[in-house]
Amino acid sequence: MVTAELKIAKLLIFHFNFVFPGYYIFTYRRVTGISICTIDVSQADGPRTVREVKSTVSKSLGIKTDEIEVIKDTTILRNDEKEFRTDGVTEIMIIRKDRRVPIGERTSKEDMFDGDLADGDRIRMSCGHAATPENLYRYCLYKLNSCDLSIKCMECDEVWEFPEISKKADMTDDESVFFSRKMTKVAIDYNNDIRQCPTCGIHCTRLSPDNKQVECVYCKRDGKSMYSFCWECVLPWDAGHNCEKNNINIAQHTLDNCERVKMKYSNISNVPKVRACPNCKLLIEHTGGCKTMDCRNPACKHTFCFSCLKPMNKFGGLQCGNYNSKCTVAPVQKLVI
Rank of each mutant, 00 (worst) to 15 (best):
P209A: 15
P209I: 13
D210L: 14
D210G: 00
K212P: 01
Q213Y: 01
Q213L: 14
V214L: 14
V214M: 11
V217Y: 07
V217K: 04
Y218I: 13
C219N: 01
K220P: 04
K220D: 02
D222V: 00
D222Y: 00
D222P: 00
S225D: 11
S225M: 09
M226Q: 11
M226S: 10
S228K: 15
S228E: 13
C230E: 09
W231K: 08
W231E: 10
E232K: 13
E232L: 14
C233A: 11
C233R: 06
C233F: 07
V234E: 03
V234H: 05
L235I: 09
P236S: 01
W237M: 14
D238H: 15
D238V: 09
D238I: 11
G240K: 13
H241L: 03
H241G: 05
H241N: 06
N242V: 02
C243Q: 03
C243P: 00
C243S: 05
E244W: 01
E244A: 13
K245W: 03
N246D: 12
I248C: 06
N249K: 13
N249M: 08
N249I: 07
N249Q: 14
A251V: 05
A251G: 04
Q252H: 06
T254H: 06
T254F: 05
L255I: 06
D256G: 04
D256R: 08
N257E: 06
C258S: 15
E259H: 08
E259A: 11
E259K: 15
R260E: 12
R260W: 04
R260D: 13
V261E: 08
V261M: 12
K262L: 10
M263K: 04
K264I: 07
K264G: 01
Y265E: 15
Y265H: 11
Y265F: 14
N267C: 05
S269D: 15
V271H: 10
P272K: 14
P272H: 12
P272N: 15
V274M: 11
V274I: 15
A276L: 06
C277S: 05
C277A: 05
C277W: 04
P278T: 04
P278H: 02
N279G: 04
C280Q: 10
K281G: 00
K281A: 05
L282H: 09
L283K: 06
E285K: 15
H286G: 02
T287P: 03
G288W: 01
G288K: 04
G288P: 08
C290A: 06
C290M: 07
K291M: 03
T292F: 03
T292W: 08
M293H: 03
M293Y: 02
D294Y: 04
N297R: 12
N297Y: 00
P298S: 13
A299D: 12
C300K: 12
C300D: 08
K301I: 02
H302K: 09
H302R: 04
H302P: 01
H302D: 05
T303I: 12
F304I: 04
C305A: 04
C305K: 07
F306H: 11
C308T: 11
C308M: 06
L309I: 12
K310D: 08
K310I: 02
P311G: 10
P311N: 08
P311V: 02
N313S: 07
N313L: 09
K314W: 10
K314V: 03
K314N: 15
F315D: 11
F315H: 11
G316R: 05
G316M: 11
G317D: 07
L318N: 01
